[in-house]
């Protein structure tokens, strides 16, 4: 998966997509691949999740050894594009600074997405636009959440269709063809093992195929609760709780259950354990549903937070990702 030129990471909002994109970047860089993680629409979530400061917009900013980051603003992409397409710098600067031209560009449906994807494509080329720019082995695109993400990927072809002739249509088609070639691009969806994200991910797999002819290459299920209890322990946990609460509370699996008010710390801990079992069971069901509907075995990532902050730990996530990738490669 990390051997493609471009890896597109998408998924429903709130699934930890950016953190997974960052962790993928860390893994690829560790394997010695010169890697850049790109974000669009003025987002800078990736440096934050790695505890690094975001660089200037549109600048390729080093985050750590072998890993860079860029936040792509379409206005900057347009300026760069004009600079490359026009014979004179003066004309490019004049147009780039012109208000009516900016309005015109922003009024053209899909142009912002096209320009953003154009820059992603440029980053992924072995021959960059200037000689001074070093090529990357891998570009990881932290794409917008599901719906907007698909629209972003589809922009080059939508534009090529809308503008039947001319250089932009030609370039749109070129980018689209490159993007939809599985030798270049892999698409990875991040989900959580909950009903709504799973349903949305299943829909995404279908839409990718229908609209772009792309197959999902990998599925990541993020934030899984670590397996703490075996099924055989459930009966004992229930019995221990019932002994403390009376039989009425034994069925409660919510933390808002009786023990929360009763102040019995052991009963509270037992209720939490039973809730954890119920969550883990639900997660297994959702992972299985996803696997069957999409036809891919999801890569599982644990819920891993730092003890002092309760924030997601990208280091632990990267290690888990390395292991799970190695396992899935061994299987293949």
């Amino acid at each position: 998966m990390l051997r493609r030129r471009l890896l597109v990471v998408t998924g429903k909002g709130g699934t930890g997509k950016s953190t997974v994109a960052a962790a993928l970047g860390v893994v690829a860089a560790r394997e010695g691949r010169r890697t850049i993680v790109a974000e669009v629409a003025q987002r800078t979530d990736v440096p934050g999740s790695l505890g690094a400061a975001a660089g200037e917009p549109f600048a390729e900013t080093p985050l750590r050894d072998g890993l860079w980051h860029i936040s792509i603003d379409p206005a900057d992409a347009l300026r760069e594009y004009l600079h490359d397409q026009l014979p004179s710098d003066t004309l490019a600067r004049m147009l780039g600074g012109s208000r009516s031209f900016a309005l015109l560009a922003s009024a053209t449906p899909g142009l912002a997405e096209l320009l953003s994807m154009g820059k992603v494509w440029e980053l992924a080329q072995a021959q960059r636009r200037t000689r001074a720019s070093q090529p990357y082995d891998l570009v990881i695109l932290d794409a917008p959440a599901t719906g907007h993400g698909l629209a972003t990927l589809a922009a080059p072809s939508a534009f090529a269709r809308a503008a039947a002739a001319g250089p932009v249509a030609r370039q749109g088609r070129l980018i689209h063809d490159w993007l939809t070639d599985p030798r270049n691009t892999g698409v990875l969806a991040v989900a959580r093992a909950e009903a709504l994200p799973v349903a949305e991910t299943i829909a995404l797999a279908g839409d990718l195929r229908a609209q772009l002819g792309l197959e999902l290459e990998a599925l990541v299920v993020n934030g899984l609760s670590p397996p703490r209890f075996g099924r055989e322990e459930e009966g004992r946990l229930r019995k221990a709780l019932a002994a403390r609460e009376g039989s009425a509370a034994a069925g409660a699996t919510h933390e808002s259950g009786a023990a929360h008010e009763s102040g019995n710390p052991v009963a509270f801990a037992l209720e939490l354990a039973l809730a954890d079992l119920a969550v883990a069971r639900g997660e297994r069901r959702q992972v299985e549903r996803l696997r069957r509907a999409v036809g891919l075995t999801p890569l599982r990532l644990p819920f891993a937070v730092k003890e002092e902050s309760g924030e997601v730990d990208p280091g632990v996530l990267a290690d888990a990702l390395s292991r799970t990738l190695a396992r899935s490669e061994a299987r293949a």
Binding site: P167, V168, A169
Partner: peptide
């Protein structure tokens, strides 16, 4: 009346996007 840049902008946009798109727009 508009600035000289506007005419140039039109020309550039026509060249970049192709005439069809401009006609559609």
């Amino acid at each position: 009346v508009a600035a000289a840049g506007t005419g140039a902008a039109l020309g550039v946009l026509r060249r970049l996007t192709g005439v069809d798109l401009m006609t559609d727009l």
